[in-house]
Nucleic acid binder design. Sequence first.
DNA 1: CCAGAAAGTTAGTCAAATCTAACAATCATA
DNA 2: TATGATTGTTAGATTTGACTAACTTTCTGG
Lengths: 184, 184
Amino acid sequence: MVKETEETRVQQTASMEDYLKAIALLGRKEARATVTNISKLLKVKKPSVTSALAKLSGMGLVVHKRYGSVDLTPDGFKAAQDVYHRHRILCYLLADILKVDPKIAKDDACRMEHALSPSSLERLDQFIRFTRNCPHGTPDCLEGFNYYLKHGSRSKDIMFRCRAAEQSNRESTNGVKARKESRR
Amino acid sequence: MVKETEETRVQQTASMEDYLKAIALLGRKEARATVTNISKLLKVKKPSVTSALAKLSGMGLVVHKRYGSVDLTPDGFKAAQDVYHRHRILCYLLADILKVDPKIAKDDACRMEHALSPSSLERLDQFIRFTRNCPHGTPDCLEGFNYYLKHGSRSKDIMFRCRAAEQSNRESTNGVKARKESRR
DNA sequence: CCAGAAAGTTAGTCAAATCTAACAATCATA
DNA sequence: TATGATTGTTAGATTTGACTAACTTTCTGG
């Protein structure tokens, strides 16, 4: 018997993930998910959309009536949510924690979201939750970092609260990974 | 007159960046950068390497003597350094700060490195430097985060040092970016 | 030195994802 | 309700980056 939380999640290509995300986004606004709208949003030509929809239909992720409506199946919806979650998490890290310009943060997130593994996503999510659920507001670390960003050095005031603790600092990972396996 | 720091850096594709990184890596070891070695490292077949080298030659990033040596030009070296820097920064974030399994961290970094803009890289770099140059060791925030990761909740002890401070928390960025412009 | 092994290349194929041009369906309104 | 505009599709070309099969060059040990 198979676990019910079965993650049979077939890996989408970056392109297909973008289409799913766009469809989900348009679907929940006044703007309907149509070939033309998707085309405009992703800045691709309409035939590219038609062809992508055919592929996504084949994978059972959308239902596309010829000359008609475009809808996500439950699987498609889940997949889209998944991409969008990765997107939001990356965006938050970049824009809100690291103070990258929001537009650039969004663009980067749009590209990186296709490359984030579940494990990394999970940890990033935890980290963000950690920085947000401090009962007194901005945790020291972020406050300190914001100061550091602005002035180029640490605030003496914030700094002295820093504890002594050793950090094992391994220099590992030679930095190259097979192209083949790094595809999604 | 043009600025001398002219960043005429032509955007490489992810694939080309991988080749550059591999060549740089092999170049500075006992293992020479040869077609066969690059092929093994990136897990692609040799004809793919030959063809990539032809392209990189055309771009003036490597010098490849037929049946012979493979060397980075100064530009190629710079480009390779650049990719590798992005790689190390992402790896550090994932593995050392977020405590993602090193192998997974490396794989993720290998994919995300192609999508990180200079601005985000810069901020990430600053953040990491910030977490490392604390004169007393691990800054509170990381110490606190490590505790949080292990126990699922904050350490009361660490927490009370957290300052009150308001955080303006905008929910922005609708999360879709044109595919076209998100290519490199 | 020369024969087989190893390394590298060439030529041609394939798949993914885009594009353009031309056609077909639907809509909107006069 | 006809007709022009909008929307969507089909067919076919292009690009990128991989692959296989077959060939050529270089190296190496007897």
